[in-house]
Nucleic acid binder design. Structure first.
Lengths: 144, 144
DNA sequence: GTTTTTTAATTGATATATCAATTATATTTG
DNA sequence: CAAATATAATTGATATATCAATTAAAAAAC
């Protein structure tokens, strides 16, 4: 009988979930009020201010509905300003608030420490190789 | 400025999410009525009939509340029978129905094909190495 | 220039994740 | 054994995931 522990994708899922729990707890413990998903969407918007929500969704590998709801929360929490796009009234212009910029910046050390802790004992080359490997899985699952 | 694509954990999350979407769609398209999470919980129960819900939760890396709700759905869908445990009235005795056994068995080819497709072009040694690598991450995140 | 089609975003319904609080039962302790 | 503590599971609240349906505006087609 096949054992869960032997299934590659089981380990894959377990690793990202374990990391997420670990990282989210560290973030909350430091007093920051963003979830990892909110951080990800906010970061995608800051890096690409001209993108629409669909492009943001793709970058954050979320679906449109989730992005809509996450943005709503970010607006409510005053991390984002949302106004109708001057060139296309179906869209919104999303602008991170100064609070958001400052929040992200001061989260940076925590984020970096989380990653470092999770990757302890693993060297850069190996990390890069695994990342390459994961990219192939992503391609394989998309080209169907 | 750090780019999302360069962040290892971003790629990690993207890979498992892409795989999940791909696999879940294939499962639904074949007419099976289980989500991947329900499959996982059901599989854990079948492999370890004596476990309580907390042990199941751990094996499926879910929290107790999620497991309670997933089991509820599995009972409603007639994949599980749930009776009070004779030795401890706080617990339940969970038994997969014949329907569940048959369902899992006939899902097996789809599951195997999904994994194979996602891992195309990747050899066994490499897969095993990456799995080892991921196990280290899991340890690192738990030993804090 | 009006109709048709596409596109951007939202909403509703259901499933899952997480934390905190609660309930019911078992176990321990004094 | 009665009180205190621990354990198993559920429930409530909020966040996220997914699919389908809907709305509003833009673009294309005629």
């Amino acid at each position: 009988m096949e054992r869960l522990d032997d299934i590659f994708f089981y380990t894959l899922e377990k690793s990202i979930k374990t990391y997420r729990q670990f990282a989210q707890r560290a973030i909350l413990k430091q007093g920051f009020e963003l979830t990892i998903d909110q951080w990800l969407v906010l970061k995608a918007i800051m890096d690409n201010p001209e993108w629409n929500q669909q492009e943001i969704a793709e970058a954050a590998f979320k679906d449109f509905a989730s992005v809509t709801r996450i943005i709503e929360l970010l607006v409510k929490k005053e991390f984002l300003n949302r106004v109708i796009h001057p060139a296309d009234r179906r869209r919104f212009l999303l602008t991170p608030t100064p609070k958001a910029v400052q929040h992200l910046k001061s989260m940076q050390p925590v984020t970096e420490r989380n990653r470092k802790t999770a990757l302890r004992d693993l060297n850069q080359d190996e990390i890069a190789r695994v990342q390459q490997f994961l990219t192939i899985i992503i391609k394989n699952c998309n080209n169907i």
